[in-house]
Amino acid sequence: MAKTHVTTTINGEPTEFLCDASQTMLDVLRDQLGLTGSKEGCGSGDCGACSIMLDDRLICSCLMLAVEAEGKKVETIEGMAHGEQLHPLQKKFVEFAALQCGICTPGFLVASKALLAKNPNPTETEVRFWLAGNLCRCTGYDKIVRAVMEVAAEMRETAR
C-alpha cells in the first residue's frame, strides 16, 4: 500500500513524513525522525516511557497511529529544554537523583510537565496518581515524586 504523507508540527518545527498506515507515532519518531528520546518499554500503553503531548494532551505514542499526527501539534522530550537551559523539571530530576538508569525519565518528565500545566499545586497523592501510568523499576518513585512536588512549589513561587 502506498505510504501516507503527513504534515505536522513537532517541538514547534513544521515536519513532514511518509508512513505506513500501521506505523505508530513512536515508530516514526524513533526510526524515521531520529527522535529516540521517546522509549518503547512495552508497546502496549502500560509503561509510559513513550509519553508525548499531542495537542496539549498526554498520550502514549506507542498507542497512536502516525497518520493521526496530521495537522496536530506534537511535543516530545527533545523539545523540553530551551537552548542551553534545561526545564526546571529536568534540572530537579538530576539534582534530586530522581533517575537511576534513566530509561523511564523522558516519559516521566513529559508526564510531569503535563501535570503541572494542568495542576500547578498538586498534592502528593495527585502526583502519585497522575504518574501511575509511568513505570519506573529503579527508584521506587520516592525521589521522582519529591522532584515534581519541589518544582511545582518553585514554579508557584516564581509565578507570584
Binding site: 527522535l35 529516540t36 521517546s38 522509549k39 529536568q90 534540572k91 538530576v94 537523583a97 534513566g102
Partner: peptide, 21 residues
C-alpha cells in the same frame, strides 16, 4: 556529597543512547 551525576543532562533530555537507539 550529592553533586549532579555526570550523565544527568544526557538522561533528562533524551540524548542518552540506550540499546534500541
Amino acid at each position: 556529597t550529592r553533586p549532579d551525576r555526570p550523565d544527568g543532562a544526557d538522561k533528562v533530555t533524551g540524548r542518552a543512547r540506550f540499546g534500541a537507539d
